[in-house]
Design a protein around this nucleic acid. Sequence first.
DNA 1: TAGAAAACTTCAAGCACTTGAAGTCAACGC
DNA 2: GCGTTGACTTCAAGTGCTTGAAGTTTTCTA
Lengths: 153, 153
Amino acid sequence: MSTTTTRTTYSIKDAAMLTGLPASTLRYYESIGVIGPIRRGETSSHRVYSEEDLDLLTWVACLSATGMSVDDMRSYVANGALGPSAAANQVALLVEQERRLALEAEQIALRARYVRIKIAYWQAVEAGDTARADELSDQARALADDLKKVRKN
Amino acid sequence: MSTTTTRTTYSIKDAAMLTGLPASTLRYYESIGVIGPIRRGETSSHRVYSEEDLDLLTWVACLSATGMSVDDMRSYVANGALGPSAAANQVALLVEQERRLALEAEQIALRARYVRIKIAYWQAVEAGDTARADELSDQARALADDLKKVRKN
DNA sequence: TAGAAAACTTCAAGCACTTGAAGTCAACGC
DNA sequence: GCGTTGACTTCAAGTGCTTGAAGTTTTCTA
């Protein structure tokens, strides 16, 4: 009869997806002590992330995204400033993170549109349709201006 | 009677402001050949950017913003200078860029959802609503499970 | 027009990842 | 069981800026 504890563990790939940090960066952060050593599998050397690990990494991702240096992140985490006792503070951090993600999504949508225009442009050039190419060139220029504005935040 | 070509020129600081790239990055791009050598002042060694330089740099800034490597930027700019003959090459590069952007958008949407759950979670903890906190914890876990299924594609 | 202050220059070093090589581990079909 | 496939591991080297130092050049103010 096995103990049926609800499985709440994650592979490094899961952790990477949920935090937005590449797996290589998770290993890097661990290697330089931003986060403590992660538990390994019973039979393997593979990292096994717990729910708490994920919570902590979510915070670290927030700090990283706001441009904090790894040295500062390390002391921030070491000082326990990210524990449950600072809930209000943490919500503020997460709301900020949410705002930044929305902005990032906006930027990506703009860039995708820009790229699509450029694809159409080169296809027009290839087809020898100069008028359409010029028109698309103007569209690209206008969009580049939009992109610059969004970027300022 | 002087030739009245309106010769608009820009300092490196002007160029940085107009392209959104730091001055240090403009010098770096020039040093590794992403852009050609910029004209210098008559009496000084200061860079003097022309309108054409600015156009090219705006384009380079867009490539940079979409995460293109400097090597790819270099060949892309070189191909662009070659005009219509390289059109097919340009389209291939851009289609790849479009695919990357779509993937990035997907990841960001997922992260945003995770962050929103975490915000609600900490607000529940702060309010002492343990039941709701547990429920949200489950939701975060469910999101991770959904992710595993999506990952198969 | 002198002399300070701001902006530019090069070069080198630093930072925060990122990638590559070479090997280990796990899950599947046979 | 047994090979193949793909994800994981470590470690070292590479990448793309970024910053700092030390020295011009330009511009502002007096």
